[in-house]
Every structure is written in structure tokens, then in C-alpha cells.
């Protein structure tokens, strides 16, 4: 699992790739929560290159969404097919704002 972070104007962009499973979740969660605490309340998590995600990965996304809600911020996701299918399976697509690619997401934000 690789996590890259960059800022685009006032938007924090986190790009994940590889497997997003329990082994990586602790660290990713810490980094994302840090970013949320320091950032401007706009977070884009780009998972277009994530090959696998499990329920602990989902939990990280839910935690990020809840933290941003407290800050009245906004979480936007970009998904790969496997991420999208787990999100739909757990019906989280009714909660998360999802875009097909990073450009569309940045433009919408």
C-alpha cells in the first residue's frame, strides 16, 4: 500500500494504491486523521489504483467522513471497480460522494 499526499489549492488529495486491507489500515487512518485535523476541511481520497479493499478499509473511510462532518467539511472519493463494488455492497454509496476520476472530483470541489 502506497499513500501519497499533495495539496491542490485548499484541497487535500490523498492518493492510495495497492491493497487497502487491515494490515495497512492503522497507518492510513492516522495519516488521514492528521490531514483532516490540519487541513481546510476538504479531502479527496483517490482510490483509483486500489486493487483490494476490505471492511477495515471501509471503516477508515467512514471514520474520515465522520471527522469531516464534525468540521463541516467535505469528503470526496474516487473509486476503482473493486472499491466501488464493496462500497455498494455495504450501501455506503448513499453516504459518500463519489467521482469517476480525480479531475472531475477536483472540478466539483
Amino acid at each position: 500500500m502506497i499513500l501519497q499526499h499533495r495539496s491542490h489549492n485548499d484541497i487535500d488529495v490523498v492518493q492510495l494504491s495497492g491493497r487497502f486491507a487491515m494490515a495497512d489500515c492503522g497507518e492510513i487512518n492516522l495519516s488521514i486523521q492528521d490531514l483532516i485535523n490540519q487541513g481546510h476541511g476538504k479531502l479527496l481520497i483517490d482510490m483509483e489504483k486500489v486493487t483490494f479493499i476490505d471492511s477495515s478499509g471501509c471503516a477508515v473511510l467512514v471514520a474520515a467522513y465522520k471527522s469531516l462532518q464534525l468540521k463541516a467539511g467535505r469528503l470526496v472519493l474516487v473509486t476503482s471497480p473493486s472499491v466501488q463494488s464493496l462500497i455498494e455492497l455495504t450501501r455506503l454509496h448513499t453516504i459518500f460522494e463519489i467521482f469517476p476520476n480525480q479531475d472531475a472530483a477536483l472540478e466539483a470541489m
Partner: peptide, 17 residues
């Protein structure tokens, strides 16, 4: 495809892959 539901049609259309 899926959406959060009852969003603006314009935004949803632009979100399509």
C-alpha cells in the same frame, strides 16, 4: 451506476464514467 440519491441531475450526469 450508483449515487447518493436525489442529487442534482446535472451533477449526477457529469459524474458518469
Amino acid at each position: 451506476s450508483t449515487s447518493r440519491g436525489e442529487g442534482s441531475a446535472l451533477a449526477e450526469l457529469r459524474r458518469l464514467k
